[in-house]
């Protein structure tokens, strides 16, 4: 009984991590690039950032869901091409939970920085442009850090 270990498909959880990472990079990246161009063109208090940020949030959720579904289908197709039919692994087992906890720690650290900074800025009555974008930036970086640590754990070990 030979287990072919050269092409083990990723677990569902790892796939989600990859998709989520790519989506955050894309959506938050695009948003912040756009925001930077706005700073060049307008004074800070005239930048209409609220709607673009909402769109970015919504897009990241939708794209993650769509991306995960496509990834699952694509994975099945890919396996079919190579004639390898394995049950798609969507179980979440103790290893997935352990890795999720690991990822959460990174996200939590970034989020704490976001929250503390936000409360301080709010107490100083700073324009919400800075407050909202600080929180979004902290969480975007946190999400990326979380995804990177999860993928490393899946590949290299916890």
């Amino acid at each position: 009984m030979n287990d072919d270990e050269s092409h083990v498909p990723m677990t569902g959880e790892e796939k989600i991590a990859w998709v989520y990472g790519a989506v955050v990079l894309l959506t938050s990246g695009a948003y912040f690039v756009w925001l930077a161009t706005q700073f060049a063109a307008h004074p800070a208090d005239e930048i209409a950032w609220e709607v673009p940020l909402l769109i970015t949030l919504g897009a990241s959720i939708v794209l993650t869901i769509v991306g995960t579904i496509l990834g699952a289908i694509g994975g099945a197709v890919w396996q079919g091409i190579w004639g390898r039919f394995e049950e798609p692994d969507f179980t979440t087992d103790e290893r997935d939970r352990a890795i999720k906890e690991l990822g959460n720690r990174r996200m939590f650290a970034a989020m704490t920085a976001g929250v503390v900074g936000t409360l301080v800025l709010a107490m100083l009555n700073v324009d919400t442009l800075w407050i909202g974008n600080w929180v979004f930036l902290a969480c975007s970086i946190g999400a990326l850090a979380e995804v990177v640590s999860k993928i490393r754990a899946y590949r290299r070990g916890v």
């Binding site: 909402l54 690991l102 996200m107 939590f108």
Partner: peptide, 25 residues
């Protein structure tokens, strides 16, 4: 570690809600 995961969900929700509130002025 286990407890932090439990708390992070609640805090994360608060952050998301606050962010959306800021976007809605």
């Amino acid at each position: 570690r286990y407890a932090q995961t439990a708390g992070a969900g609640m805090t994360g929700l608060a952050v998301l809600v606050a962010l959306i509130m800021m976007c809605l002025d």
